[in-house]
Design a protein around this nucleic acid. Sequence first.
DNA 1: CATGTAGATGACGTTCACGTAATGTGAACG
DNA 2: CGTTCACATTACGTGAACGTCATCTACATG
Lengths: 133, 133
Amino acid sequence: MTEDLMTIREMCETYDVTPRTLRFYEAKELLFPIREGQKRLFTKSDRARLKLILRGKRFGFSLEEIRQLLDLYHVGDQQMTQISRTYEIACERLEDMEARREELTQAIDDLKEQLRWGEKVIASVKQDKKAAE
Amino acid sequence: MTEDLMTIREMCETYDVTPRTLRFYEAKELLFPIREGQKRLFTKSDRARLKLILRGKRFGFSLEEIRQLLDLYHVGDQQMTQISRTYEIACERLEDMEARREELTQAIDDLKEQLRWGEKVIASVKQDKKAAE
DNA sequence: CATGTAGATGACGTTCACGTAATGTGAACG
DNA sequence: CGTTCACATTACGTGAACGTCATCTACATG
């Protein structure tokens, strides 16, 4: 068993973050490690949340936005008042993300076209070189 | 014709940014408006670059990363030395972006599943209410 | 017991991406 | 001709997201 609990150092090595970062996320109420005396112990839930935090960051979400998203993913953690309101917000978020993917797809296509153009240029440069020899 | 040149104010309204932002981007060498006396005039190229800047930001790229990407998109603007090197970098970037899209797709699927779960909860809550009446 | 070693707690520093005055300037308008 | 715009520059301010440093505990180890 992984003991289901990890020290701050283990977390840092596993997810490649600094202790400062984990304490910062706790202060911002993104993580809720339990305390054994002074020390923090990170649960499975904390690890799931951290993965989502890091993922969110890669897509340019602010920590505050991520905190709200986390609340959506972990409704079960709290009382389920206003679930349907939460549900609506989640639907909107989903639309955001699908729009983002659309845009990203567009960007990828653009870049691919640019690359095809680049290939042609490279080819013609090689051609010129050959002709010049 | 749109005259192909836009004032800073027109740019701001078109792309919903502040003058400060455009000047900042110029200082960071992301944009290169031409000068008529003191005033900046933004070209078609500047507008294309700005669109890419705003898009990049939405995906969590830093301005410095975006600057490098812009250099890839606008090879034609400069001399074409080291085109093949540029081509390689662009290929790597493309892989980055496709990986990002994969991740985003995964996130979307996760959220969708969460939503289906939420629907079930809502349905059962409604059921409980009905039973309690 | 001295000495690490791992972690905790402030508190201040830093970088990025702009915001926000304060001040200046050239063209246009009444 | 004074004033109002629209734009410019210079410089300092700001919030987010940590980094860094000093200091303090608790525990293990030779």
